[in-house]
């Protein structure tokens, strides 16, 4: 056990974390982003990225129809090509979990988990009772993954214990019914040092995954942020022999973006993380671009967005 239950021990542990070399991280993340991935490696990376996707719709305008449509796409991303893998999960607001679960079960997607955003997503500004109810609603409706947001207000004011305790309680609610992904909302954490601290805090509190962003705040899954989080899970593994997953979300729209993420995973955390079990990409528009790139590689000529679904 790295820390005991007291806020003091948590604070003193977080203090021992080394400072992030911001300039170095930016430079190395940018350098890794220039790596060229071609032909068979690219084809492999595209299919891996598809199988790692949390296909997401988190709009106020979401309807059951739209959720059913993305479920269909999650199971079979392109109906004309059966060699394309299914995505990693479908991610929706908690009132849509039931629709998503039932649809997936009906169309042969029972192995695809439904992820629900919870704890007053995206701001996290609500009482604990509300957050707990939010989480329970999602689990009861069939969510197998809970994407909770941390209380950034408490974190930024230094009330780490509060943030920690909340994650612990939500984790208890999840029990063995649901995986817990903890959203740090790095766009609001200001510094990479805070990203490192929040990553450790979430892992110590029992997160199965740490996730960059809600997708509602810019900047979201920038390369330096993902780099720092991947370092955190790597170092946490060497301390505890437990592998925690990472999920970048927000702003990953093109195949190039996705492949850059995979390069980071391989180079920073290691090849063990190149699996949907330990790395997910939260996105919606990305899937179409991956499909277009796949078509280009298959057909030998450039594809058109007119041949993939509008969503």
């Amino acid at each position: 056990m790295i820390i005991d239950a007291s806020e003091g021990s948590l604070k003193s542990f977080l203090k021992t974390l080394p400072q992030v070399d911001e300039v170095g991280v930016h430079a190395r993340a940018a350098m890794l982003g220039t790596r060229s991935i071609k032909t068979t490696s690219k084809a492999w990376a595209i299919d891996m990225a598809i199988s790692m996707m949390d296909l997401t719709t988190l709009e106020g305008a979401d309807t059951p129809g739209k959720v059913r449509a993305i479920c269909a796409k999650a199971v079979r991303p392109d109906a004309t090509d059966l060699s394309i893998p299914s995505v990693g999960a479908v991610c929706v607001y908690n009132d849509m979990v039931g629709v998503a679960r039932r649809t997936l079960d009906q169309i042969g997607g029972s192995s695809i988990p439904v992820a629900a955003v919870a704890t007053a997503f995206p701001s996290g500004r609500a009482s604990y009772a509300v957050k707990a109810q939010d989480t329970m609603d999602a689990i009861n409706a069939g969510a197998a993954e809970i994407d909770m947001v941390i209380d950034r207000g408490a974190f930024l004011s230094g009330r780490y214990g509060e943030v920690f305790a909340e994650i612990v309680k939500i984790k208890e609610l999840c029990g063995d019914k649901a995986h817990l992904k903890v959203i740090l909302e790095t766009g609001e954490l200001v510094t990479l040092d805070n990203v490192r601290k929040a990553s450790y805090l979430a892992m110590l509190a029992g997160a199965d995954f740490i996730k960059t962003s809600t997708g509602k705040v810019v900047p979201a899954a920038s390369a330096p942020v993902v780099y720092v989080m991947l370092e955190a899970v790597r170092d946490y593994y060497s301390m505890t022999q437990t592998r925690i997953g990472v999920k970048p979300a927000g702003g990953i729209r093109t195949t190039k973006d996705a492949i850059k993420q995979l390069v980071l995973v391989n180079e920073v955390a290691g090849p063990e993380w190149l699996s949907p079990r330990l790395f997910r990409i939260g996105a919606s528009a990305l899937l179409n671009d991956l499909l277009l790139q796949r078509m280009k590689m298959r057909d030998g000529y450039y594809a058109s967005p007119a041949y993939v679904t509008l969503d």
Binding site: G300, Y301, Y302, A303, S304, P305, A306, Y307
Partner: peptide, 8 residues
Amino acid sequence: PWTASHMD
């Protein structure tokens, strides 16, 4: 050739 085959 790339122009002629480009689907978009």
